[in-house]
Simulated scan of single mutants.
Amino acid sequence: MTPHRSGPERHLRDTLAELVREQLGTPIDADRSLFEAGLTSVAALAVHAGLQRSIGAEFPISTLFKYPTTRALAAFLATALDEPAAAPLDAAPGDAGWTPRARRELRAQLRQRKG
């Protein structure tokens, strides 16, 4: 079980939940796969775009497929951005689209929301 976190992770999870609800027309459990719940690839594009707008930075859409629940995606983003030296983004080959600039921008956005 993942420890309860607040701040950036909770904000990301809430934002994702709202974006997904807008696409599916109904809320889903934070641990349910977005795609098993009916999110199509076209709807995933809308969720991805909305999340990028919300945090003010770009990241690869493949991240949604790699972390397909709102809880997993929010935890991954928050952890990766909160702990830059140990960030899985730096080592994960599937996340090559995460440029150093994108990581800096995301970290800055999340830190602003902490305060």
Rank of each mutant, 00 (worst) to 15 (best):
7 G>C: 05
94 G>D: 15
3 P>C: 06
74 A>S: 13
23 Q>R: 05
40 T>N: 12
105 E>I: 11
2 T>A: 15
40 T>G: 11
92 A>V: 04
72 A>K: 09
39 L>I: 05
49 A>K: 08
100 P>E: 10
39 L>K: 05
70 T>H: 09
76 F>G: 04
26 T>S: 13
55 I>D: 02
76 F>V: 02
87 A>H: 03
24 L>I: 01
115 G>D: 15
38 G>P: 01
26 T>Y: 13
68 P>N: 04
58 E>P: 01
21 R>C: 11
92 A>K: 09
111 R>N: 07
12 L>H: 02
94 G>T: 06
97 G>I: 07
73 L>G: 00
84 P>I: 15
68 P>C: 02
114 K>N: 08
66 K>V: 02
101 R>N: 15
66 K>L: 10
9 E>L: 03
94 G>E: 15
107 R>M: 05
90 D>W: 13
50 G>M: 06
26 T>H: 14
70 T>I: 01
43 A>N: 06
8 P>I: 04
49 A>R: 11
20 V>A: 03
8 P>C: 07
21 R>E: 15
85 A>F: 11
55 I>K: 12
111 R>F: 13
72 A>E: 07
80 A>S: 10
99 T>Y: 13
43 A>M: 11
112 Q>C: 07
11 H>P: 03
74 A>W: 05
7 G>V: 01
96 A>M: 10
94 G>C: 04
98 W>R: 09
28 I>S: 05
18 E>S: 09
43 A>K: 09
18 E>M: 08
35 F>K: 01
110 L>R: 04
82 D>H: 12
70 T>C: 04
14 D>L: 08
59 F>C: 00
7 G>D: 11
64 L>K: 05
100 P>I: 02
37 A>W: 01
110 L>P: 02
46 A>R: 15
83 E>F: 13
30 A>W: 04
12 L>N: 03
55 I>E: 08
46 A>N: 10
64 L>Y: 05
81 L>A: 07
92 A>S: 08
27 P>I: 00
19 L>H: 01
10 R>T: 02
70 T>M: 07
38 G>W: 08
4 H>Q: 15
27 P>Q: 06
76 F>P: 02
91 A>M: 10
112 Q>A: 13
102 A>T: 04
81 L>R: 05
17 A>C: 06
92 A>Y: 14
78 A>W: 03
29 D>G: 13
70 T>N: 09
109 Q>I: 04
16 L>D: 00
112 Q>K: 14
11 H>K: 07
106 L>T: 03
109 Q>D: 14
21 R>W: 10
89 L>V: 12
47 V>R: 06
32 R>Y: 11
28 I>D: 05
35 F>T: 00
81 L>C: 06
1 M>R: 13
34 L>E: 00
89 L>R: 03
74 A>V: 02
103 R>L: 09
86 A>G: 09
97 G>M: 01
12 L>I: 04
49 A>E: 09
58 E>A: 14
97 G>K: 06
59 F>I: 01
7 G>N: 04
34 L>C: 01
81 L>W: 06
1 M>F: 14
77 L>M: 10
7 G>Q: 06
